[in-house]
Amino acid sequence: MPDKEKFFEQIVRENRDKLYRICRACLADPDDAKDLYQEVLVKVWLHLHTFRGEAKLSTWLYRIALNTAILYRKQQNKHTPLLPQHISELPDASAETAHKQEQEVLLQKLHYCISCLEKQDRLIISLVLEEVSYKEIAEVLGLTVSHVGVKINRVKQKLALLMEQQAGAEIELDKADKR
């Protein structure tokens, strides 16, 4: 038991941010993402004994995260993309540096654009953003490497398009404000 706890703590320590970001990409709502993240950790703990080292630990973790996310969405039975106006809700300017604010704006835009993607695309992009190799993504999703490569290119294009549209909409809004 203590060994299991130590192993679990080590896994959590080393992977919690990655797992949280995957949850964040899968679910648009930050509160749902937090809930999902908690559930992923519980699942990791409960199924830790099934990890036999045949696959890479990260592959096993991603699989648990993605399966939990898929089940979670089925139970929730809803996916609501973020509203574009959420992007303008920024934290207090005095509390944050300009750089952090810029980063925050970009992240919010990114979350919005990801939330507009198809569900499988959101899973793929979450792994791509984590710099997971094509081979590992293919293992996690149960697809061939070449298929994954094609899919990733498409998702990247879609994301880039959404980001451009988002930027375009902002310029339009700025112009309207100035008028």
């Binding site: 703590e9 919690r16 941010d17 970001r21 950790l41 519980v42 703990w45």
Partner: peptide, 21 residues
């Protein structure tokens, strides 16, 4: 930029998860 995001209240969550599990 994406990778700058961190798990919320990391210590409490991770510790809590151990206890919860």
């Amino acid at each position: 930029n994406w990778q700058t995001q961190q798990a919320p209240a990391a210590e409490a969550k991770a510790g809590g998860a151990t206890a919860e599990s």
